[in-house]
Simulated scan of single mutants.
Amino acid sequence: MDKIMQLQVVKKEEEINQIMKCNELSIQYGLTLTPQDVEGLLEMQHKVLQDVGRVEFHSTILQQIIHEFCDSLFIHKYNYVETINQLLEIFYYYRDATEDYLTDEEIIHYMKIAFDGCCQGSLYYLSEEQLNTLMDDLNSRNDIYEGLAYGDI
Results as ranks from 00 to 15, higher is better:
Val48Arg: 05
Val9Asn: 03
Gln18Glu: 04
Leu31Val: 02
Thr34Pro: 00
Leu31Arg: 00
Pro35Arg: 08
Ile19Tyr: 00
Glu13Met: 04
Gly40His: 12
Leu25Thr: 13
Leu7Arg: 05
Gln18Thr: 07
Val48Thr: 08
Gln45Trp: 02
Leu25Met: 06
Ser26Gly: 06
Leu42Gly: 07
Gln6Cys: 03
Glu13His: 13
His46Thr: 14
Lys47Ile: 14
Lys11Leu: 11
Val55Ala: 09
Phe57Leu: 09
Ile4Asn: 10
Leu49Trp: 03
Gln50Lys: 15
Asn23Asp: 06
Lys47Ala: 13
Leu25Trp: 07
Gly53Met: 01
Val48Tyr: 00
Ser26Thr: 01
Ile16His: 00
Gln45Thr: 05
Arg54Trp: 12
Gly40Pro: 07
Asn17Phe: 01
Ile19Trp: 00
Asn23Leu: 06
Arg54His: 13
Pro35Gln: 08
Val9Glu: 11
Leu25Asp: 10
Gln18Cys: 11
Glu24Trp: 06
Lys47Ser: 12
Pro35Ser: 08
Ile27Leu: 05
Thr32Arg: 11
Met20Tyr: 03
Glu43Trp: 15
Gln36Trp: 11
Leu25Tyr: 04
Glu24Pro: 01
Glu39Gly: 10
His58Asp: 15
Ser26Val: 02
Leu49Ala: 05
Val10Trp: 05
Val48Glu: 00
Ile27Ala: 08
Ile16Pro: 01
Glu39Leu: 12
His46Asp: 15
His46Phe: 13
Val9Pro: 06
Leu49Glu: 11
Gln45His: 15
Lys21Asp: 01
Gln8Gly: 06
Gly53Asn: 09
Val10Ile: 14
Ile27Lys: 14
Met5Cys: 06
Glu56Ala: 04
Gln28Asn: 12
Gln36Ile: 15
Ile4Gly: 01
Val52Thr: 10
Gln36Gly: 14
Leu41Phe: 05
Glu39Ile: 12
Asp37Leu: 03
Asp37Glu: 02
Leu7Val: 06
Thr32Cys: 10
Val10Asn: 15
Met20Thr: 03
Gln45Phe: 02
Leu25Val: 10
Ile19Ala: 01
Leu42Gln: 02
Gly40Asp: 14
Lys47Gly: 12
Leu31Ser: 02
Leu31Trp: 02
Gly30Lys: 03
Asp37Thr: 03
Leu41Met: 04
Val38Gln: 00
Val38His: 00
Asn23Cys: 11
Lys12Gln: 09
Glu13Phe: 09
Glu56Gly: 05
